[in-house]
Design a protein around this nucleic acid. Structure first.
Length: 252
DNA sequence: ATGACTGATGGAATCAGA
């Protein structure tokens, strides 16, 4: 079973690229971020025609997240990160697919630093760990966990994505018992998931690893492989992120 | 230190992204 995450940076302007990638790689679950579309502008028919059952949490102008499930209906849908009734941003979705709880999240950028805190995500993530269920938390975390995950670490030291407190918050999250699937399967490799549109960042491989798939203790033993569909970033009219995925030994 | 590039909004110029 393959679970992927892809910050599409506008689902309607990216629809062709998204459908091509879905057709080529056929992930069983795809978590999407930055839909940049209100609820009623989600291209539901095109997604269904591609063989996927979508749930989504839209928002005008920015944000917006979706979970697409191939040949399966997502169950028990939860919209929004619990713990703050005043939070109206569409950045968090939960649903069960094939017996796995899938979390699709899009964490705030945080700039200008120091930016938002992680408390609410820590609390929810701990609750999910405590259930003992197989969980994958996939999405755009806007955090480079270590120096290996930035093309020029010294230039990012004072940026919210890489400041020590941000990295510490991510490390604390992982320390609850989550497995960073990309890093677990490629301990020493330089892997990026994002390249800025500016100054030919992709051509220079000036990238960041900020899209992550975290596996709960019940799911981590089923991890078989993980990777980045890097070539998608090099196509016409690309998102600035590339799709990132895990393959699980789990019946689809 | 700054700006470069892209999408959404709204119908030009500005904001947000990371």
């Amino acid at each position: 079973m393959r679970v992927a995450t892809f910050n599409v940076n506008g689902i309607n302007s990216r629809l062709g690229a998204l459908l091509q990638w879905l057709d080529e790689t056929r992930p069983d679950v795809a978590c999407l971020q930055e839909l940049k579309a209100p609820q009623e502008k989600f291209p539901e028919m095109a997604i269904r025609a591609a063989g996927y059952h979508p749930i989504w949490h839209g928002q005008k102008s920015w944000n917006g997240v979706a979970i697409l499930a191939r040949d399966a209906e997502p169950q028990g849908v939860q919209r929004g990160l619990p713990g703050d009734d005043a939070d109206e941003q569409s950045r968090y979705l939960e649903a069960a697919v094939n017996g796995i709880l899938v979390v699709c999240l899009y964490l705030p950028n945080g700039n200008p630093a120091p930016g938002p805190k992680f408390e609410r995500l820590h609390a929810r993530a701990q609750q999910l760990i405590d259930t003992g269920a197989p969980v994958v938390m996939a999405g755009d975390y806007n955090v480079m966990p270590t120096e290996r995950d930035v093309y020029k670490p010294e230039r990012w030291l004072d940026d919210a994505l890489f400041r020590p407190e941000t990295r510490a918050a991510f490390a604390k999250l992982v320390g609850q018992g989550w497995t960073d699937a990309l890093r677990a399967t490629h301990p020493d490799e330089v892997i990026y998931t994002f390249w800025d549109y500016f100054r030919d960042a992709y051509g220079r491989n000036a990238g960041l690893r900020i899209d992550h798939l975290l596996l709960s203790p019940a799911l981590a033993p089923h991890l078989k492989a993980a990777g980045v569909d890097r070539d998608v970033r090099g196509r016409e009219k690309p998102s600035d992120h590339a799709p990132t995925w895990v393959d699980l030994d789990w019946p689809a």
